[in-house]
C-alpha cells in the first residue's frame, strides 16, 4: 500500500516538474550566464543606480499598500466579526464582489476615477478642497490607491478568521476586571489578533512586490521590479539580467514567508512554555 501512495503524486509531479521547478532552475542558470562573467548581473543589480531606484520604489509602494490595507482592512474585519447571521453574509459578499472583477478591469476603473478630469478630481474641485486637479497618475498616489483597493480583501479574510476564533469570554473577563471597552480592545482583542495581522500583512506585502498590471497602467513614470524584468526580457532581450532580478524577487518571497513561519513557530513555543507553567 505504501509504495502505491506515490502514484497519487504522479499528476502533480507531471505538472510541477516541467512547468514550475524546471523554470526556476532555468532562471537560476540563466542569471549566471551573462557575457560579463559569472555573477556580474547580481553585481549590476546591487550597484546600478537605476535598478536600485526601481527596487526602492517596489519596496516603498508595497510597504505603503500594506499599511493602508491594514488601516482599512482591520476595522472592516472587526465590524464583520461582530455581525451575525444575514448581515455577516452580506458584508462578506460585498467585500468579495470587487475581488472577482479582473485586475485589469479594476485598474481601468481607477484610471477613469483618478484621471485629471475624472470624478474624484471634479468632486474635490467642486467642494473647493483643491484649486488644481491632483495628478494622481504621475506620482504613484493613484497606483497606491488602486493597489490598496485590490489588496484589502486579502487582509480582511485572515484577520476576520483570527477575530472570530477569539474566545468571547476573554474580553468579558477583562470587563469584569474593570477594563473599559477601549482597554479590552487594546489589551485583549488586538494582541490576540496579532498573528493574523502578520499573516495578512505578509500576503499583501509579497503580492504587492510582484504587481505588474496596476503599476503599468497607473504608475506613470514610476517603475516597479516586475515592469523592469518584463522590459529587460521583452524589449532589451537581456535575459541574464531579467533572470537575476527574478531570482532576487523569488528569494525575497521565500525569505519573507520563512520569517513568518519562524515567528509563528516561536510564538507557539512561547505559548506552550507559558501553559506549561500553569499545568
Amino acid at each position: 500500500m505504501k509504495h502505491r501512495s506515490f502514484l497519487l503524486y504522479l499528476p502533480v509531479a507531471l505538472l510541477l516538474t516541467p512547468f514550475f521547478l524546471a523554470p526556476m532552475a532555468v532562471i537560476g542558470t540563466e542569471s549566471f550566464s551573462g557575457q560579463h562573467g559569472v555573477g556580474a548581473e547580481y553585481v549590476k543589480v546591487v550597484t546600478d543606480q537605476g535598478i536600485r531606484t526601481v527596487l526602492y520604489n517596489t519596496f516603498y509602494v508595497a510597504a505603503m499598500v500594506t499599511i493602508l490595507s491594514l488601516l482599512i482592512g482591520y476595522p472592516i474585519a472587526y465590524v464583520l466579526a461582530r455581525l451575525k447571521g444575514r448581515w455577516a453574509t452580506i458584508g462578506i459578499f460585498l467585500i468579495f464582489l470587487p475581488f472577482w472583477a479582473s485586475t485589469v478591469i479594476r485598474s481601468f476603473a481607477w484610471m477613469i476615477l483618478l484621471g485629471r478630469k475624472g470624478p474624484v478630481n471634479s468632486i474635490l474641485l467642486g467642494i473647493g478642497l483643491i484649486e488644481d486637479p491632483i495628478r494622481f497618475i504621475d506620482n504613484g498616489l493613484g497606483l497606491m490607491i488602486a493597489m490598496t483597493y485590490i489588496m484589502v480583501p486579502f487582509i480582511v479574510v485572515p484577520i476576520l478568521n483570527g477575530l472570530r476564533a477569539i474566545d468571547p469570554n476573554l474580553p468579558r473577563a477583562a470587563a469584569v476586571l474593570g477594563a473599559n471597552p477601549w482597554r479590552q480592545f487594546l489589551a485583549v482583542t488586538l494582541p490576540l489578533s496579532m498573528p493574523n495581522i502578520a499573516v495578512g500583512c505578509t500576503i499583501v506585502f509579497v503580492t504587492s512586490l510582484g504587481f505588474f498590471v496596476t503599476p503599468s497602467l497607473l504608475g506613470g513614470d514610476l517603475t516597479v521590479v516586475s515592469m523592469l524584468i518584463s522590459e529587460q526580457a521583452n524589449r532589451l532581450l537581456d535575459w541574464p539580467l531579467a533572470s537575476a532580478l527574478a531570482i532576487i524577487v523569488l528569494l525575497l518571497t521565500i525569505v519573507i514567508f520563512a520569517l513568518l513561519r519562524l515567528s509563528q513557530l516561536a510564538s507557539r513555543r512561547r505559548d506552550k512554555a507559558r501553559s506549561g507553567v500553569f499545568a
Binding site: A22, P23, S230, A233, A246, L250, F257
Partner: peptide, 14 residues
C-alpha cells in the same frame, strides 16, 4: 504567492 513574472521568465524558454 510566487510573483507571476518570475514564473513567466522561466517558462518562456521551456
Amino acid at each position: 504567492v510566487l510573483p507571476q513574472i518570475v514564473l513567466a521568465i522561466g517558462l518562456f524558454p521551456i
